[in-house]
C-alpha cells in the first residue's frame, strides 16, 4: 500500500543494517521519540517519496528504533531498502496505530515479519502471562529465539513448515491451532501478518469457541 499523506516526515541516519536471514533484513536508527510497543512508522527513501508502513521492532526504552522487513522481489521499497548502508538517510513519519499491547494475559500469533510488534512488546516488558505462537518456513527465520525462549519457555511455540527441529511444531500456525484440544476463551488473541494468515487464523479461533471480540488483528496489507 502506497502512503503519501500529509503526515510530516523527518530524516534519520541509519545506524544499523543487517540481513538476519535470507531475504529478512533489519535496519535501525537512533530513537528520538516515544512510541507504544506495537505501533508502526511510515518509511520512505525521499521526503516526498512513496511510503510503506513498518511495525517498530524494538523496545520502548531501546536506544535504537529498528524495523524488520522481508524483501519483496517485485516490490518498490524493500529492494531499495536492502541496498542501504549505515550512514544513509531514511525519511520516517511519527509512530501511529493502535495495535498496542498491555499487561493482560494474551496469546500473540504471527507469521513471518509479523513477529515485529510482539518482539517490541516483549522488549517493552509485556511478556508476562503471554503465549507466543510464531510461524515460518525455515528454522533460521525464528529471529530473537533466545529472548523469546528465555522469557517464555514452553509458552514460546515455533511452527515451522519446511524444516523439523526438536521443540518446534512441524506445520503451519493454523494447523497447530486447529489441533489444540482447548483454547482459553477468556484470553485475548493478537494476530499479525498477511491478510491470508490473519483471516484463516481468526476463522479457526472462532470455530474453536473464541469470541470474536477477543481477537485483535493487524494486517500487513
Amino acid at each position: 500500500m502506497v502512503t503519501n499523506d500529509n503526515h510530516q516526515v523527518s530524516p534519520v541516519t541509519l545506524t544499523f543494517t543487517e540481513e538476519l536471514s535470507a531475504g529478512i533484513y533489519m535496519i535501525g536508527f537512533k530513537r528520538t521519540f516515544f512510541f507504544r510497543a506495537g505501533q508502526v512508522i511510515g518509511v520512505a527513501l525521499q521526503q516526498n517519496g512513496p511510503r510503506r508502513l513498518y511495525s517498530i521492532c524494538s523496545g520502548e526504552q531501546d536506544e535504537e528504533i529498528r524495523i524488520l522487513y522481508k524483501l519483496v522481489d517485485n516490490g518498490y521499497l524493500t529492494p531499495l531498502l536492502s541496498g542501504l548502508e549505515t550512514g544513509d538517510t531514511l525519511w520516517i513519519t511519527e509512530p501511529g496505530g493502535e495495535f498496542t499491547g498491555d499487561r493482560e494475559p494474551a496469546v500473540w500469533i504471527a507469521a513471518g515479519t509479523g513477529v515485529a510488534p510482539f518482539y517490541s512488546m516483549l522488549r517493552s516488558g509485556l511478556a508476562e502471562q503471554k503465549r507466543v505462537i510464531l510461524g515460518n518456513r525455515y528454522l533460521e527465520q525464528f529471529h530473537f529465539f533466545d529472548e523469546f525462549d528465555t522469557l517464555l519457555g514452553e509458552n514460546y511455540i515455533r511452527c515451522c513448515t519446511a524444516e523439523t527441529d526438536e521443540g518446534a511444531y512441524s506445520g503451519r500456525v493454523t494447523q497447530y491451532l486447529a489441533e489444540q484440544a482447548e483454547l482459553d476463551p477468556k484470553l485475548k488473541y493478537y494476530l499479525c501478518g498477511s491478510a491470508e494468515m490473519v483471516v484463516e487464523t481468526r476463522d479457526i479461533l472462532i470455530s474453536k469457541g473464541i469470541p470474536f471480540d477477543r481477537i485483535i488483528s493487524e494486517i500487513y496489507f
Binding site: V40, G97, I219
Partner: peptide, 16 residues
C-alpha cells in the same frame, strides 16, 4: 466505538 471497530475491521488499528 474504537474498541468495537477494531474487532470488526483490522484497518482500525492502522488508521483509526
Amino acid at each position: 466505538f474504537d474498541e468495537e471497530r477494531r474487532k470488526l475491521m483490522p484497518i482500525q488499528q492502522v488508521y483509526p
